[in-house]
Each structure stands twice: as structure tokens, then as C-alpha cells.
Nucleic acid binder design. Structure first.
Lengths: 197, 197
DNA sequence: TGTCTGACAGATATTGAAATCTGTCAGCGG
DNA sequence: CCGCTGACAGATTTCAATATCTGTCAGACA
């Protein structure tokens, strides 16, 4: 009857996140999660069909949280070039902060990303859609000139892989990094901006 | 007296490449290399101070061979935009071919690249210089317009990371890949091209 | 009735002893 | 001399026995 002791997917996800943070992806087991919740591990399998699905659900939650500020930025208004630059820089900063603050969860994400799992693909597609939104706003404003918004959004995403894909995370702390980001941003903005000489 | 039986760095590198191809990076040992050359492993250490240095020397040879066609392309003449596009596409194709033809050596390169070792850094810098050469040719031809050639060359290199960094190799075979490369190339070329409306 | 448990089979991970490897060097043989 | 060998110490890897984990399910319990 007590709400707090009902075993819900939400509570399981919470506990899983704790366990992952405490033990890391490699060591965390479903048994640990069950122990943290003080139930048998069989009960966990009532709510998630496999360890993989549980891990994916945690990753999804985590990614959705990380994505929220970017959704807001894409939905805001104002001049598209500034908005695109801000959006990309924010994306980089969020990732960079995660890798420092929450390294265990980041390792989980990295393992997911390297396995090219469904959850991450969906997340990437969502990011590309947000970029596409800004690009089409820019076209409407007459400041961008782009043949194919969707393809160009994908190209912008691909071009910035170095600063948002976790495989490159160790490079983000290097001192020359900010200058390289500046140069990349300038190149990409020139690539989408309408010509007016 | 017989040239063939003198133990030279060159012969050791040859044998090491064979051993790596046969056993893979994980399994290959200095003892294997020595056995292939029919000498004691102590002799190998006369020519290379450590296993790491031997591995790096093999990687350097391999990278230098892969880089040769790109050097030629950068040194050739003709319109810079076509040359830049050709250069980048060739770089992608070389990598892609390597990953199919010579997977063991590719795994070695991947291990090196992930360890961000000196040899690979030097190779990347060389690549950036080649891009810079084409860019400055384009500026001289009046077809490119770029503030800082060196920084922009680095940006072009960074923007194409997805198609030349081995961490992304598994994505190269996907069917949507060529279209995404096309979109990226278009974006980057627009980014460096001089405006003429 | 529906939720949870706990025992189970097969898969995976841990462990520690034994084998192998790396890097050094005194000394052999040409 | 000079290049090479082979034995060695310490580090690393292998391997097989042991323990733990994943995923299932019949049945307890409320």
C-alpha cells in the first residue's frame, strides 16, 4: 500500500543509475540492482525483459535529460546563425561536462555509442532534426542558403563529430581545442550562410 | 657476408609486419618476430629499444605508404576546389580499402590512434599541411576565400574525422554513407569557396 | 488473482598458479 | 673488437577450476 515500496520501472531505473555510478558498467549486475531495491533479481525481470533493455532504458533517460536544453535552444527564436553556433557549442559543453562530472555514466554511454545501439541512433536522429529546425528557420530568415535542409543538417552533425562523439572525449581537454572549435564553427557557418558580397 | 642474412632494421620491420598480419596486434610478440627471422629476441632489441618502438616504426612505414598518393594529389595542379574534393575522397577511399584488405594492420593502427601516439600525431599534422597546401593554392587562384589557411585546413580535417578516423570505421560500410559524404563535401566546399553571386 | 520469490541451467566472470613475455646483460664465438 | 646468444628477474598473459550472473519458471503468499 505504501507508494514508496511499490516496485516501478521508474524506481528500478533510479536504482540502476545509482548502481552504475557506484560500480561502473563493467561491474554492475542485475543482482546488484535488485539488492539495492531489496527485492529478488527475478522481480527486476518482471519490468525489463533483459539486462540490455534495462541498460538501454537508463541510457535513454540520461540522453533525454542531456537533450532537454538543446531542444529549448532549437525551439527558441532569434537570428539563426547565432542560434546554430550557440546550439553546437552548447552540445559540446554538455558532453564535456558529463565526461568530467559523471564518468561512470559516460562510460556507459560510450559503450552504447560504440555498439551503435538503437537508443543512440534515435538520439542522434533527434539531434539532426533540431539542427534542421534551426537551418530551416535561417532559410526563412534569408540568412542561410541550403539545397537540402535535412542532408545539410546531417552534414553539420557529421562535421562536428569530433566534439560530440564520446570516442573523441580524451581530446576535448587539450589546450588547442577551443581554437580548433572556433575554426570549425567559422567554416561551417560560412558553408550554410547566404552569399551577400 | 651474405647481404640476406644481415639483421637490419628493415628486415625486422618486414618480419614484424608479417607477424602482425598473421597473429594480430594482440597476439604478436617480439619472440615471434625473432623466430620468424631465426635469431634470438635479444638481437631484435639491438635495433629497437622496446616493443612499443618497433610497433610504432611499423605503423610509420604503413602510414607513409598510405600517405604517398595524397602527397602527390596535393602537389599536383589544377583547380583547387576539384583538387580538395578529390583529395578528401581519396583519403576516405584509402582508409576504407585498408580496413577491408588489411584488417590486422588496421587494428594495429586503430590501437595506435586511440593511444594518440606520437607517430599518428605527426601523420595527422602532415595531412593538415597537405590540405593547407591545396587551400592556399585555391586562395592564389581566387576561388577560395579563407582568413587563416592553417586553421581552416585543421577545421576541414576535423570536419571529416568521421570518414578518416578508424574509431568510426564500422560506419563506413553503411548504405547511407556515400550520400552523407556528398552532403559534407558540399558543405565544406561552400565554406571555403569565395563568394561570387 | 497477481506479485514476488528462490532454485535452477547454461553462460559469463573471477581467480590464482603456471607459462610466457619483455627487456637486460655477461660472456661466447668469429 | 663486435654482433649475437641465452639465461635471468620482474611483468604480463594464459588456462582451467570455481564462483557469480542471467534469464526462466513453478509455486508461495497476500
Amino acid at each position: 500500500m505504501n507508494e514508496a515500496v511499490v516496485l516501478t520501472p521508474e524506481r528500478i531505473l533510479e536504482a540502476t543509475e545509482d548502481v552504475l555510478r557506484r560500480f561502473g558498467l563493467a561491474k554492475a549486475t542485475v543482482v546488484d540492482v535488485a539488492r539495492a531495491l531489496d527485492v529478488s533479481h527475478g522481480s527486476v525481470y518482471r519490468h525489463f525483459p533483459s539486462k540490455a533493455s534495462l541498460r538501454d532504458a537508463v541510457a535513454k533517460r540520461w540522453l533525454d535529460r542531456a537533450n532537454e536544453p538543446l531542444c529549448k535552444l532549437a525551439a527558441s527564436d532569434g537570428p539563426a546563425p547565432e542560434r546554430l553556433e550557440k546550439w553546437l557549442r552548447t552540445a559540446f559543453t554538455i558532453k564535456q561536462k558529463k565526461v568530467c562530472d559523471d564518468p561512470e555514466m559516460f562510460a556507459t554511454y560510450l559503450a552504447l555509442a560504440q555498439g551503435a545501439r538503437e537508443v543512440v541512433e534515435a538520439y542522434k536522429d533527434k539531434q539532426v532534426d533540431l539542427i534542421a529546425k534551426i537551418l530551416s528557420d535561417g532559410v526563412a530568415q534569408g540568412v542561410f542558403e541550403v539545397d537540402n535542409v535535412k542532408a545539410t543538417a546531417r552534414a553539420v552533425f557529421d562535421a562536428t563529430v569530433r566534439y560530440h562523439h564520446p570516442a573523441h572525449a580524451e581530446e576535448w581537454a587539450k589546450p588547442e581545442c577551443p581554437a580548433r572549435i572556433d575554426a570549425l564553427m567559422a567554416l561551417l557557418l560560412r558553408g550554410v550562410r547566404a552569399c551577400k558580397p
